[in-house]
Design a protein around this nucleic acid. Sequence first.
DNA 1: TTTGTTGCAAATGCTTTGCAGTTAA
DNA 2: TTAACTGCAAAGCATTTGCAACAAA
Lengths: 132, 132
Amino acid sequence: MSESSTLRPTRQRRAITEALAGASDFQSAQDIHDSLRQAGEKVGLATVYRTLQAMADAGEVDVLQGSGGESAYRRCSTHHHHHLVCRSCGRTVEVTGPAVESWAEAVARDHDFAEVSHSLELFGICADCRQQ
Amino acid sequence: MSESSTLRPTRQRRAITEALAGASDFQSAQDIHDSLRQAGEKVGLATVYRTLQAMADAGEVDVLQGSGGESAYRRCSTHHHHHLVCRSCGRTVEVTGPAVESWAEAVARDHDFAEVSHSLELFGICADCRQQ
DNA sequence: TTTGTTGCAAATGCTTTGCAGTTAA
DNA sequence: TTAACTGCAAAGCATTTGCAACAAA
C-alpha cells in the first residue's frame, strides 16, 4: 500500500505497462505474467500482482471481476465507460451509456444514496463467433 | 453439477433456504454457514457451497461477485432486476431499469452481438450511514 | 544513503473435491 | 435397494505477504 508516495519507473513496471498496451482485451495477472515470460522479460508473479493493483488504484487500468474469483485488467481510457464482452472469443468493445449514467443517478437520488458508483458489463456472442 | 436430475428436499437444503429467506441482504456462503451454526443447525460448509451453487444454477438465488473473490448470494424475485448496495452497511435495494434494458439491447444490436445479458450493480452510501 | 521495489517461498482465504457413510424415494 | 446427499478433510486456485537482496533518487 504505497499511498500517493513516490512511484518508481522500473524495468518491471515498464514491461507490465507495455504488455497491457499491447493487449487489446482483458487479461488476468497470470496471463500478463506468461506474456512477459514469453517476451523474455523476467518479472515475478507477485510483482505483477502488486503493480497491477497499484495501477488499478491509480486509475490507469480497468478491473473486471471474473466469476472464478480472478480479476482481469485492461489499459483503459480514463473517461467513464463500460464493456461489451464476447462470451465466446473474449473480444471486448468499449461502450458508453449516457442513458445508464443518468438512470443510475436518478435511482440513487430516489433511494437517498450518496457517492454512487456502478459496475456494468454486457456479455453476448459477437457476429464472428456466431458464423462458424 | 447434478443436471436437471432429482433434487431432494433435505433438512440441510431447507435450513439453507430459510436462512436465505430470513436475510434481507446478500450473504456469503460462510455467512450462511455461521447463521445456521448459531441457529443450532449443523450443516457442513461444503454442503452450503454445493447447495448454494445448485440454487444459483436453478435461478433461485442471485449471485453477486465480491472484489475479494468471494460470492454473495441472495434469494431473489425471478424477474430481471438490479441492486443498489450500501457500501457501508450492506443494505440492498432491488431496482429495475427499463432504460438500461433497452439501452443494452440497442448497444448489442449496434455491435452485432447476440444473446446479450448484462450484470449491473450500483454502490453508494445510504442515508442512515451518512447520518452518523 | 535512503526508501521504494523485487523475487521467492510461505501463507491466506474462498471454494471445490474425493470418499465413505447417510438418507430420501 | 438405489441414487442423491452429506460431512470431513484434503486439495486447488488466485492472490497476498514477510523478508532479505536490489536499485533508483
